[in-house]
Amino acid sequence: MKLFNPSTPNGSEPEEVRPAVGFLGPGAMGAGMVSRLLAEGYEVHIWARRPSKAQRLVDLGAVMESSPADVVSAAPVVIGCLLDSDVIRELYLGPSGDDGIVAHARAGQVFIEHATFDPGLALEISRSLGQRGAAFLDAPVSGGPSGALAGTLVSMVGGSTSTLRAVASILGSYCAKLKHAGEIGSGLRLKLINQLLVSVHAVAAAEASALAINAGIDGKTAHDALMGGWAASTMLDLQMPKAYAADFSSGGASTGGLLEVQRLVSEMISQSGTSSELLGPVRKVFQSVSDSGHADDGFSALLLHYLGEDATIRRSAETALQ
């Protein structure tokens, strides 16, 4: 959103005035986004359920607000990066449907939500904001926390072209690509397709890692060879070295975190009349690993479905990457 200062002298180039930006939910993913916005010179007002976890952003220059409503009051553009559909419904619409942040929206404001959530809820929020003269974009992102910090995220956007054009420079602070998918909800539907592929690729990478470990193949050899041809994938690249090392750290993306998204993918498949031969078995792998106490661990923990806890630890010690 480019705003210009009308008080510049006649004949001079108008100065670009960066609008204040509100940000709700500066967690693992959102923190990188806020950091990029601050680095670009935006005034950023944030709200977090646990303010202590966002103190680093305050130290960088962000303004901590005491409530989501205060964030809405402080900025013409309000960005969210929240957890899931339930949290988004509560925050935007409130328990009674009319006492969330939407009730504090004013004409001309733009609200952007980066979470992956129910496309139907996006339409509800958009309609409610529209009644107050505000606009909404569903803009889920792909690229993980590291992509947010590096400014290389890809955002799949649903909403009007004019609204996206108005906030493109803001989103460009942390997104390398903005893909307009269509009307409200379209960005979320495209992201759900993305997450179908991520889920399938993650389980495939876990199976490949288990096979290579059981075959006694050196980890570096397996990784380099498989990443050198058609078998290569981002999930294999990320997971195989960590699987060999029995490193199940999440880096912000956990096995349990995909369960709700996979449910939404299943609903989308059913509603579209499409079938999936892969999603069902993939969901069972994610569910079993999450239920075994690894819901907060990364996708490399899917290896445990195939090797088990004891075998994984023992074999990783024997075949760890050099």
Score class of each variant (00 low, 15 high):
residue 189 R to P: 00
residue 228 G to T: 04
residue 267 E to L: 10
residue 138 D to Q: 09
residue 123 L to S: 00
residue 172 G to S: 06
residue 149 L to N: 04
residue 25 G to I: 06
residue 313 I to M: 09
residue 63 V to I: 10
residue 198 V to L: 06
residue 277 E to H: 10
residue 309 E to N: 03
residue 95 P to V: 12
residue 91 L to A: 01
residue 306 Y to Q: 06
residue 313 I to G: 01
residue 101 I to K: 02
residue 160 S to P: 14
residue 302 L to N: 12
residue 220 K to I: 02
residue 286 F to E: 02
residue 53 K to N: 02
residue 134 A to N: 11
residue 275 S to H: 07
residue 90 E to R: 14
residue 208 A to Q: 08
residue 200 V to D: 09
residue 209 S to D: 07
residue 214 N to Q: 15
residue 198 V to D: 01
residue 228 G to D: 06
residue 37 L to R: 08
residue 267 E to I: 06
residue 163 T to N: 10
residue 165 R to D: 15
residue 37 L to I: 10
residue 52 S to I: 07
residue 47 W to N: 11
residue 285 V to A: 03
residue 108 G to V: 06
residue 141 V to N: 09
residue 294 H to F: 11
residue 30 G to T: 14
residue 182 G to N: 01
residue 278 L to E: 08
residue 309 E to R: 12
residue 104 H to R: 11
residue 102 V to P: 01
residue 154 V to F: 05
residue 295 A to Q: 14
residue 147 G to A: 02
residue 121 L to Y: 04
residue 21 V to T: 07
residue 127 R to E: 14
residue 300 S to C: 04
residue 55 Q to F: 10
residue 164 L to A: 07
residue 15 E to A: 13
residue 17 V to Q: 15
residue 26 P to N: 06
residue 298 G to Y: 08
residue 24 L to F: 13
residue 1 M to G: 04
residue 173 S to C: 13
residue 33 M to S: 11
residue 134 A to S: 14
residue 223 H to R: 13
residue 321 L to P: 00
residue 196 L to A: 15
residue 110 V to C: 02
residue 190 L to R: 10
residue 41 G to H: 07
residue 102 V to M: 01
residue 232 A to W: 01
residue 136 F to T: 03
residue 77 V to P: 03
residue 270 S to Y: 01
residue 230 W to G: 10
residue 197 L to T: 14
residue 262 Q to P: 03
